[in-house]
Design a protein around this nucleic acid. Structure first.
Lengths: 337, 337
DNA sequence: GCGCATCACTGAACCGGGTAAGTAGGGGAG
DNA sequence: CTCCCCTACTTACCCGGTTCAGTGATGCGC
């Protein structure tokens, strides 16, 4: 089956290719009557502009890229990325931009992928997640002049805009809530220490604990996987003065922590309260359902996509704070016995 | 920063564009010495072929499309899709094909997306998941002559190749295992009844139950979400002769079912045994860990991508059965009390 | 020494849309 | 009536690879 081209439309409308191009793109240079005629012919024969031809003649590729750099077994279970992706799609789909995905193993590979995409003119911009301190991707993006938006921060990303949520405020709220319930020994199981937002959270956690005079507070670094979450939890629970509450940096580790507590015969929330960062269906699925720090991940993604499209259009984009994080109390938190 | 083109290479090598193209693509028409010289220049200046130009001149777009038609909140939590995507990527990345993703709400939108992608020449083929009986996407793909591979089946998809796993064998194994443990009243909570593989599983489940003389077996349809999984489980557990074992069509519903049982004061596996279809970290994360029907989802995805690339290359692709499903016994199954 | 095949390469057309530059025709001002 | 300007187009070339039809040089057989 032959794909219709603007030449087909031009022939049927009795005008030149150029006129059709102007008409379809809303450019001046054709009369309103001709524009309508051309548009209706395009509609009728089901015309879609060949994205390759369009990209070739200097216009946009109408696609943005996303690289995911996490082990496959974690990607699968963590609701975070899929939520983010749905958010991107909501915004991209509306402007008929495509999302190109690449799963990689290391940040070095991410850089390679960016270079390749850029060389191939395959994408107009990229969404950067899991930002690290002195992230090697930032200078490359600057060198290539590739429009980008960084998810996570705040931190130093030079001229590249960031979008972040108020992690410091959120963790402060969670700690205050636990203290109000009567907890004094609060621990935290964090994500990878190299990530910028882990560092921000750790700093805020230590700050609020110091401010409230909690001197048994401790952060154990983990990596977002269930295995590490279990290990960290065991380490915390077999210690002498074990915490009465644990805050986890993601839902997967929180669920793993819950299972460890149950396996050790501890009652949740009686003996141990649990707070999960990033609410997801997973948190309400388990028993007891987990108290969580909720935010609208999908909206977060949508906003990121919107900012990236602005950056691609050449609009100056500044750093933005996304929607608020709020505490959703459920059955996993209570006053300590 | 200017992107290098074959014209740049041609100038530096002192040959014509055509010669460069032949050299880079391994076509005959250039001497081995010239080819080496051209390749090393390409390497040196970091050349990547402009994908738009390549696609425009009749060659491949070197991208495949995937549409996901599930509500965002389910997409996020279900490990299945991400596992599949990692598998695709492993294969596509190797051949430097890109994966273009689109999240949609209805099968009608999927069809629209296929048509648009085809019109835009954006992709060379698509991966079709969640296949239904008389799926509306099949005739469209045939009409557009768009290479495709269907994941799931077996069922009627005309000339489009399918890749499936032996669901019937797996469910038979699970039922026999439960019967061997001493269970007689076995229930199943299924995925959406419209999906082809749900129907295959239901048929097989009923078959084996009839063969083993289990007349209390029942399948309750659900939709893969935790909410529906909970609802179905409650319905099963409050009935008069409640089942002693439940098989769930995905891990999310199984975890939700476990929570419901615990909430109702039933002990798992003492009062109720649970088997989850599709093993995932989720299953080992909860307490007790869930007995599951495991398969290598990532390998499944990789094979699907491989077959699709074959179809794109014009190789005749037949229906293939992917790697075996096997039962992984864990703490959620035991003889009934 | 001639004819012919083969090799290694060149030149130009082509894919399909975007766009700068050119042009016919009509209307209004002087 | 002429000049000029504006509108509504057309023409032609551009983007960067791919590919086909040449072309000159070389080798080979007889």
């Amino acid at each position: 089956m032959k794909r219709p081209t603007i030449a087909d439309i031009a022939r049927r409308a009795g005008v030149s290719k150029g006129a059709v191009s102007y008409a379809l793109n809303g450019q001046p240079g054709v009369s309103e009557a001709t524009r309508k005629r051309i548009l209706s012919i395009a509609q009728e024969i089901g015309f879609n502009a060949n994205s390759a031809a369009r990209a070739l003649s200097g216009a946009r590729a109408r696609a943005v890229g996303l690289t995911l750099c996490r082990p496959a077994r974690l990607l699968g279970i963590e609701p975070w990325f899929m939520g983010l992706i749905s958010g991107f799609e909501a915004e991209l789909g509306e402007r008929s931009y495509a999302l190109t995905l690449q799963v990689v193993a290391t940040p070095e590979q991410e850089v390679e992928v960016y270079r390749r995409w850029w060389g191939e003119r395959r994408i107009d911009g990229v969404i950067v997640t899991d930002i690290r301190e002195n992230d090697i991707r930032i200078p490359v993006l600057q060198e290539l002049q590739l429009p980008a938006i960084v998810i996570g921060g705040p931190g130093d990303t030079g001229p590249i805009a960031q979008i972040w949520s108020d992690d410091a405020g959120a963790i402060t709220e969670a700690v205050r809530y636990l203290v109000a319930l009567g907890h004094h020994r609060i621990a935290r199981v964090s994500g990878p220490p190299g990530l910028l937002h882990t560092q921000n959270r750790t700093r805020a956690f230590e700050g609020v604990c110091a401010a409230l005079g909690l001197d048994h507070s401790i952060t154990i670094p983990a990596d977002y996987t269930g295995e590490e979450g279990s290990r960290a939890t065991r380490r915390l629970l077999i210690g002498g003065d074990r915490p009465t509450a644990i805050i986890y940096d993601n839902d997967v580790m929180a669920v793993a922590g819950l299972a460890v507590a149950q396996e050790m015969g501890l009652s949740v929330p009686g003996d141990l309260s649990i707070v999960a960062w990033d609410d997801s269906p997973l948190c309400s699925l388990v028993h007891p359902p987990l108290t969580a720090l909720s935010r609208d991940i999908s909206a977060y993604g949508a906003q990121a996509a919107r900012e990236l499209l602005n950056a691609i259009d050449g609009t100056k984009v500044g750093n933005v704070e996304a929607g608020r994080v709020h505490l959703t109390p459920r059955g996993s938190t209570a006053p300590p016995r």
